[in-house]
Amino acid sequence: MKIDLFNEKILRPIEFLGLKNDFWGIHIDTLRNTWIAMFVLFTLVLIARHFLKRDLNPIALVFEQAVSFFDDLCRESFGGQFKYKYFSFVSTIFFFTLSCCVVGLLPFTDEATKDLNTAFALGSMSFFYVQYQKIKVQGWGAYFKEFTKPFFVLLPLNIIGEIAKIASMSFRLFGNILGGAIIFLIMINALEAYKIYFMIFCSVTLVLYWLTNKFVDLKKYKFIDVTFKTLLILVFFVAGMQMFFGIFEGFVQSFVLTMLTITYLAVAIQEEDEHERDSNNQKTGDKVIC
């Protein structure tokens, strides 16, 4: 059994500068997978637009439910007045990550988040957006002052702690998706077939079972019945594993990434609230009531 883990096409346009690491190259497969994920997302948006223009119908309801879920999430986390400010960023990160994770279900395509560079890009994008909002809300002075809390001596520790946030966000996504992809690859290799052949095999088995069941009374031919049932259990086991690692794991991981972004954003805004309230209390001369 041979498994190609790190066999990917990489273009190195700036190799003559001495930058030979994979980080400076263009990963062709990942790029293609990301474009496919974007295409899937764009198609979904077009479908949503088509159905939302009409009167009430079940497909429009699905999209409305998805939007209202994020609406509630943002309202609970940020409070009413900040809801629409961050709604688009938060929901975009979720849907893009989800589409990058589940795109591996299509034939001849792998998960785009299997590559560390994609996961790192998503994690650092979320991190830098939060830092930008923090500076915008609190100002440069308060932003830099936060690094020296509680003592000035802890400055390097605070900086390492901030950098560890990016690392933990991106490595969690990368590790989960890569782990799922490798487990599925090993399982498929054990069946000695690849995804597309396996899908054809699944559909042919299902159609054959249906046809035989329709024209022949299977209770009389025990052997055929048992064979078909064994094959079907195998098909559903593998399909179920793929559903678990492809959809469920991708869904949970993108939700965790989104929730972490929301949490870090909410922290940045909440401190401003507290600051404002304290200064208001000082203005009015009230005692701070806890």
Partner: peptide, 13 residues
């Protein structure tokens, strides 16, 4: 549970 699981996932990788 997703947070708890990510430890063993990194070990798996």
């Amino acid at each position: 549970l997703a947070f708890i699981e990510s430890g063993v996932i990194l070990a798996l990788v």
